[in-house]
Simulated scan of single mutants.
Amino acid sequence: MRFHTRKWIKPEDLNANGRLFGGRLLSWITEEAALYSIIQLEDQNCVMKYMSEINFINPVSQGGIIEIGIEVISFGTTSITLKSEVRNKLTREAIATVDQLIFVVLDAEGKPKVHGKTKVEYVKDRLESES
């Protein structure tokens, strides 16, 4: 799994118990997965169709640094399925996992559109194929 984003836990990210608010973490995971999907499918008209449950494993306090990892599970004809893991950057201790996040590419009418992708592509690979 590749970890792309780091977050520093600040007071505004905490719940009433002084721990990272689950809704804030879910927002960060969703944004990271959406960006990853848009970049992989090379289409900004990409929306979340499904998210499995989030498994909160360990709490995070103010001042903690987390990192969000995304991995492709599969490519569908119009979709991409990802999984995510959030971990403590310094200890590598798992914070939370999401087993499935499914994003779908839509056409101008809001209907699923074939994206033509079948494997993960990295920027360096795209640059090499353009030269």
Rank of each mutant, 00 (worst) to 15 (best):
M1D: 06
R2P: 09
H4K: 12
I9D: 00
K10F: 11
K10A: 10
E12K: 07
A16Y: 14
A16L: 10
L20H: 03
F21K: 09
F21W: 12
F21D: 07
G23K: 08
G23V: 05
R24K: 15
R24S: 05
L26V: 03
S27H: 12
W28T: 07
I29G: 08
T30C: 11
E31L: 04
L35D: 09
Q40W: 11
Q44M: 02
C46N: 09
M48T: 14
M48K: 01
K49N: 09
Y50K: 08
Y50L: 08
M51R: 04
M51N: 01
S52H: 02
E53G: 15
E53Y: 01
E53P: 03
P59N: 05
V60T: 04
S61K: 13
G63N: 04
S74N: 14
F75A: 06
T77N: 15
S79G: 07
S84K: 02
V86W: 07
N88H: 12
R92C: 07
E93A: 03
E93K: 13
I95L: 11
T97Y: 00
T97H: 08
V98N: 11
V104L: 09
V104P: 06
V104G: 04
V105G: 01
L106D: 08
D107V: 01
G110W: 00
K113Y: 10
K113P: 11
H115P: 06
K119C: 04
Y122D: 04
K124E: 13
D125N: 04
L127T: 01
L127K: 06
S131A: 13
S131M: 08
